[in-house]
Design a protein around this nucleic acid. Structure first.
Lengths: 127, 127
DNA sequence: CTGAATCCCTGCCGATACTG
DNA sequence: CAGTATCGGCAGGGATTCAG
């Protein structure tokens, strides 16, 4: 945690970092990086399944029956690409592929927690 | 905070709530609610501007020059609708509209902080 | 079994032009 | 000044089919 401000009290979500002043949704902004990693329908639910332990393709399909194979495949590939998941081929019959969270991926726990907290808190404005 | 588990240690992002077991991206899931509120390009940057204080349409346009009027208007309407912003018409000449964060919107600070933290942390896997 | 390829459809985003 | 209306382009997501 080195991004925190030193000159004045920390304002949540507003670290004293040059990237906190971007005026465009540039990919170098940490917030954009995270949202990109979690981007796409079903992605957070897939991550949630992994927070409960390693999973194979088939197990995920059973846990999320409404998710099509193609999209599941896309999500797993995406999450692997951004360093959230590790992919392990299992030799043998039938061939299965095992996915696990990387340490980096495991750190998404607090992120989902924060998203959950805000959404779980009732908004007086929303009808 | 009543969603926390009671029977076993809390697992971050995995509260002991029936909604934590949804198998679809249903709008009632708190995580979905938050992601819906922050949905759309530029949205987090607009929220960031408000964490720095109330803003008028013109001030926002100056702060985010690459953001078109239409999209800015869309974002402000969306954020107002989900209870993040309050809208105040300023009578007089020229007519200005002032927006401020609601208490609910102010609670997005920690959310953006969590998103920032994860994205700012280097991933050993990402090329 | 675990995806990859293809196709279509929908919704977002951006630009431009117009109104109270 | 602060939006609304409209249009086009493009990318995301779902279903189906094919391959290693």
């Amino acid at each position: 945690m080195t991004y925190q401000t030193v000159g004045h009290p920390a304002r949540p979500g507003l670290p004293d970092d040059p990237r906190a002043n971007v005026t465009e949704p540039t990919p170098s902004c940490p917030v954009e990086i995270t949202l990109t990693a979690l981007q796409g329908r079903w992605t957070t639910l897939v991550v949630r399944e992994f927070l409960r332990g390693g999973r194979t393709f088939t197990e995920l399909r059973q846990a999320l029956p409404m998710l099509s194979d193609k999209v599941l495949s896309d999500r797993l590939a995406h999450l692997t690409e951004v360093g959230v998941l590790d992919r392990h081929r299992r030799p043998g019959r039938p061939p299965r592929v095992h996915y696990t969270l990387t340490p980096h991926g495991r750190r998404l726990g607090p992120v989902l927690q924060a998203l959950w907290d805000w959404g779980a808190h009732p908004s007086p404005e929303t009808s």
